[in-house]
Design a protein around this nucleic acid. Sequence first.
DNA 1: CCGACTATAAACCGATCTGTTTCCGACTGC
DNA 2: GCAGTCGGAAACAGATCGGTTTATAGTCGG
Lengths: 195, 195
Amino acid sequence: MTSTAKPAPRERLLRAAADLFYREGITATGVDKLCQAAGISKKSMYQFFATKDELLAESLNTCGPASVAGYFADPAADLTPRERILHVFEHLEKLAAEPDFFGCPFVSAAAELRDPTHPASLVAGRFKQMMTDYFEEQARLAGATDPETLAKQLTIVYDGAAARSVVRAAGLDGLSLLTASALLAAAGVHPASPE
Amino acid sequence: MTSTAKPAPRERLLRAAADLFYREGITATGVDKLCQAAGISKKSMYQFFATKDELLAESLNTCGPASVAGYFADPAADLTPRERILHVFEHLEKLAAEPDFFGCPFVSAAAELRDPTHPASLVAGRFKQMMTDYFEEQARLAGATDPETLAKQLTIVYDGAAARSVVRAAGLDGLSLLTASALLAAAGVHPASPE
DNA sequence: CCGACTATAAACCGATCTGTTTCCGACTGC
DNA sequence: GCAGTCGGAAACAGATCGGTTTATAGTCGG
């Protein structure tokens, strides 16, 4: 019975936290609402996590990877590095078109916290770096002239496009793909790799 | 006496609101703190503005332009369109290097609100469009191949670079300038305009 | 059946939230 | 001097905040 509906109290709590913090904001989400959404008591919550901030950081850390997994193409797939890079933006375009898209969860959290030393901010920084590292690796494989710089630029395009979608409350119409392609081309990475 | 220290109650309130909402967040800033910072009573505040949200929207609308004025070079200055575009990113690099930079105030507000219909979100949308329009105008003057698209791309770079600075709590090291230059070059806008 | 453990619901704490109201002193025009 | 108005200080209202505690219901191993 517990297997079908309830994965585990702690798990449910982390999921509910990641969901509500993202959809409604950190400060705007109270602990009571959180526990109610997770079907858990406050006492249990405070046994798992000492403070709301600790829960926030752990929810980002635990549920973050799953929420951004779609950006990274299956490593087993037969794709060129350039296609793997563009896959990130294809996925972003898809997400941004939906009305419940509120930007990158990590950026969103770090921006609201305004405290670089907050545990959740550190988690956000690590994940951003992870995406940049992914870009750099693929850029290097693609033979880009300056993979490190290109990776940072692509991350900027990713976050900028996400911000655009949020303030306009609209999709991106391929703009992020177009911009990423332009930067790839400027770094010598072209669609049909010529022999 | 009132002329030296106190501009006007309403003005002070708007300034304090813009400042605190930006520095500490919207939800995290209480009305009491706001009034205290502005040196005004809550009664007066609620005579000027019906709700906190109304104050927020109006503070963005009124104090927003001044807070972003530095991005736009003096129209009288002898600058090329390309230089005017890059001036935006030079200014951003300067701001991002300071520890009290928390990103674009409009994006920040819209992101925290998560409600595209909120008056403040509409204000944010208008200002973003204003910057894009500025980019587009300069891009057209510079003879870019596709000024409209280039303008959107530059706006994306602006917001993406701001986000990067926020999550890393560090400066940009010229990265936004570099990226903007690359997109300009891709659109056929080069530094020393050759005859 | 029993004691230990667990997790729940709910009350509770002081503080703070948005928003309203009351009171009172300081101006104003007359 | 004196009604009238203004705005500030502060109490107030009801709700919610993060966090703690109590009491109770269920679930184990022994």
